[in-house]
């Protein structure tokens, strides 16, 4: 079976495409700087940050990590199957990856509901300002990722599809980026204060 060969060793062709990797670096630096600022302020208000952190549900955070990692695992398999020209199998993995994203959003919604019900908002204190902004922006990325996944899956399964490996890899790279951001947000927001 013929598979498309891309020279990934070329600096201009990382898996997912150079533009997607520029976006990943920008996102990593942006969220990273916000997390550094969060820790800096946390060091100045240790009691407040510790008390606020204890109000977060670490079990929810850990389960959401599992949801995103599982979703990322299915996404990696979807790319592998697409490269093997197994479009239907790839599509099944795409849907499983999307399911992981929806489960993440579902649990996040429950967590947000509990916080809002307890009267915790963006203005509550410095900890929660960071909490809402960082997790909120991350949720927006997950929603965008689900739209991209759904659109790519539709494009690759329709008749006379012109979806190529680079498209699927770029889509997967964006989805994995959501994992990566969460892998940094979870320990810093939920565990270390």
């Amino acid at each position: 079976m013929n598979t498309l060969k891309i020279n990934y060793k070329n600096i201009y062709y990382p898996p997912g495409g150079i533009l997607m990797w520029i976006i990943i670096f920008l996102e990593l630096i942006t969220f990273g700087m916000a997390l550094v600022a969060f820790v800096y302020y946390g060091n100045e208000q240790r009691e407040l940050f510790h008390h606020s952190r204890m109000q977060l549900n670490t079990t929810f955070g850990a389960i959401n990590t599992v949801f995103l990692l599982t979703s990322g695992f299915f996404m990696a398999n979807a790319v592998h199957q697409f490269k093997e020209k197994e479009i239907q199998k790839s599509s099944v993995f795409f849907k499983l990856a999307m399911l992981g994203g929806f489960l993440f959003l579902g649990l996040k919604s429950i967590e947000y509901y509990h916080k809002i019900e307890s009267g915790i908002s963006l203005d509550t204190n410095m900890f929660y300002t960071f909490y809402w902004l960082l997790t909120g922006f991350h949720v927006i990325h997950v929603i965008m990722g689900l739209v991209i996944l759904g659109w790519t899956n539709y494009g690759m399964t329709k008749k006379d599809s012109d979806t190529i490996t680079e498209d699927v890899e770029a889509c997967a790279a964006f989805w994995h980026m959501c994992d990566l951001i969460w892998l940094l947000l979870f320990p810093v927001l939920y565990l270390i204060f």
Binding site: Y8, P14, F73, A173, H176, D179
Partner: peptide, 9 residues
């Protein structure tokens, strides 16, 4: 592993 960066430059 998942994003296959091991294959990149």
């Amino acid at each position: 592993q998942f994003m296959e960066l091991k294959k990149a430059n």
